[in-house]
Structures are given as C-alpha cells and as structure tokens.
C-alpha cells in the first residue's frame, strides 16, 4: 500500500515535471532512447568509435534544425534547409578546390547561406508569400543552383576539412563542440533578447504582437536570415562530417529531417512553444534512432525511414495532445 502511494506520488511528480518544462518534452524521450540503445547492445553503442560517428552525424543536422527552429517557433515553416545546405556546401567545395583557401570557402558558404535566408525573409515578410510556398520555391531553385554550378559532378577529397573531425579531448569531434557553442548563442538569442521574445510572441499570437506596435515584419525577416546563416554553417559541417565530399544530390530531404528534429525536440508546429535546445535534442534523437537500427542490423534505408516515420508520429501525437484543433 505504502509502495503504491509512493509510486503514485513519484508518478505525479514526474507528470508535473514533464508538463511544466518544455525541455523535458525532448529530454525525457532522448534519455529513454539512449538507455534503450545501451541496453540493446552496449558493446557497440558505447564503443568510442560509434560515439564519435553519432556525434559527427548529429553536427550538420543539428545546425540546420537549429536554423529551422526559430522559424517554426514563429509559426512559419522553412522547406529550404536541405537545398541551402547543399548549395553552401557545394560553393565551399568548389572554392576549396580552386583557391585552396578553406577560410575563404567557409566564409563564402556562410555568406551564401545568409543570402538564401535574406531572400526567404523578403519573400515572406515583405512580399507576404506563405512561408511554405516561398521556401518550397527556394527548395527547388537552390537545388537547381547546386546542379548547375557543380556540373552534376561529385567533388571529393576535401581533406582540409578534417580539422573539424579531430578529437576534442576524447572522441568528441571539434566540429560538434563548435556546433554546440553556436547553438548556445541561438539559445541566448531566443531566451534572453528582445528579438527572441518577439519570435515567440509572433508564434503565440501574431495579431496581439502586431497591435502592440512591434515591427513584426522585420522580426520575421531577421529569423529567416539567422536561419540562412545556420544553414551555411550546416553546409560546411556537411563536408567535414560527410567524408570530405559533396555530390549534387547531397542533403536531399534534409529539410524534412530538420523539421522532424524540431518536432522530436518538442517544438510545436503551431508556434510559440518549445525549448531552444529542442532542435539539438531532436537531431540527436533522430541520429541515435538510425544508429541503433544500424547496430541491430537494419541496414535497409526504407526500413529505417519507416521506423523514423512511426517514431515521428508518436512524438507528434504526444506533442499535440490536449490541443483542440490542429492544422
């Protein structure tokens, strides 16, 4: 009897914790997933090499998911991260090949990413095109850009980018550490600054925020621009973590992985709600999920994707429970 009541009170406490902290929406499933992974095959999952591989895979995805996150928090959507990531990676690859100046290449990639974000921002905030449509166009256009500038050819052997994969301490790639640092900057932006306040406000009730006299269009523009910069960084990390090569169809479908990361990370697609570390946690979940499937011998992509899809549905259901309407 005493045991039952103590279990009940522990459960109630957990419920309270789970429902009151936006971070726990993502943190709890991530921890469950990690424990499950360890339980299933500790010798593989905890293998230093595997941990490094997982962290390398998380890095580029976490960056574009973190770019996507403020846009989703605002109640909009961005479908361009996959193409933007490919375009910036391709530019960096070409410049690295031709000039052998990696710093210049990285700066160009980040600048192109920012430009892509600026264009998205203008289309949505100034020309008032639905973000879904505007960024769908961007998805197609920037992919075409990649195919044109690359001439349809694979660029490989960009070993200069190996510096990002070197160990920081023990089997943590430097690129991952840099990414976590950038995500912390975004975290501060979203939680501690006026812009972050407005971004959350727009997602929660745009009408009210506009009536309050906030320059809402400018905030939207800024969110898309910041996202673009992060896609550029994601492009650079794609080269570093993806075998020092870029092919014209690289990062195809990554826009969906970015959105899925946000959903798994507890960012509400209706806007206004979600913890700023959700994108990192969501990207980790998505990566670990694929990793554990591989370790279990499920190497077929189609099966992996099906499992990811099912997990996404489960996550989304948990996320929207209690809402009256969903669109």
């Amino acid at each position: 009897m005493a045991l039952k009541s103590s279990i009940n009170s522990a459960l109630a406490k957990f419920k309270h914790f789970y429902s009151s902290y936006e971070l726990s929406r993502a943190l709890v499933p991530l921890i469950v997933l990690i424990i499950a992974s360890i339980a299933m095959s500790p010798q593989y999952f905890l293998n230093p090499m595997n941990i490094k591989v997982v962290l390398m895979q998380i890095t580029p995805l976490a960056l574009i998911a973190t770019g996507e996150m403020p846009i989703i928090l605002m109640g909009s959507i961005d479908l361009s991260p996959g193409s933007a990531q490919a375009a910036t990676a391709m530019i960096a690859a070409i410049l690295t090949r031709t000039t052998n100046n990696i710093l210049l290449a990285i700066m160009a990639a980040v600048a192109l990413g920012t430009l892509i974000g600026v264009i998205n921002g203008v289309l949505v905030a100034k020309l008032r095109i639905y973000s879904f449509v505007a960024t769908l166009a961007a998805l197609v256009i920037w992919r075409s850009f990649v195919i044109i500038v690359s001439g349809g050819k694979l660029i490989y052997g960009l070993t200069q980018y190996a510096m990002f994969t070197q160990d920081f301490g023990t089997y943590i790639p430097i690129g991952f550490v840099l990414t976590v640092f950038i995500i912390i900057v975004v975290y501060v932006l979203l939680t501690r600054t006026v812009i972050g306040r407005y971004i959350y406000g727009l997602g929660s009730n745009e009408e009210a925020v506009r009536l309050a006299g906030v320059r809402a269009d400018f905030v939207k523009f800024l969110a898309f621009t910041i996202a673009g910069t992060l896609y550029g960084l994601g492009g650079v990390m794609l080269i570093a973590m993806g075998g020092f090569a870029v092919d014209p169809w690289t990062a195809r479908g990554n826009e969906l992985n970015a959105i899925a990361s946000c959903v798994l990370g507890g960012i509400m697609l209706t806007g206004g709600s979600g913890h700023p570390l959700g994108s990192l946690l969501g990207a980790s979940m998505l990566t670990i999920l694929t990793n554990i499937l591989v370790l279990l011998g499920v190497t077929e992509i189609a099966v992996q994707q099906t499992v990811v899809g099912i997990v996404l549905i489960a996550a989304a259901t948990a996320l929207t429970r209690g809402l009256r309407y969903v669109k």
């Binding site: 406000g201 929660s204 009730n205 009408e207 009210a208 925020v209 309050a212 906030v214 206004g272």
Partner: peptide, 25 residues
C-alpha cells in the same frame, strides 16, 4: 496605443507569462 476588444484573439499572448505579456510593448 490601442487595447483591443477581443482579449483572446488580439490581446493576450497565450504562451507568455504575466510579466512578458505586460512589457511586450
């Protein structure tokens, strides 16, 4: 400064705290 008639639709920012609803403007 205009304080709207329909609190729910045009006034409050539902995800925000009391404090951040006050100082949004």
């Amino acid at each position: 400064f205009y304080l709207p008639e329909d609190r729910k639709i045009e006034g409050i920012i539902p995800h925000f705290t009391v404090a951040s609803n006050m100082d949004i403007s």
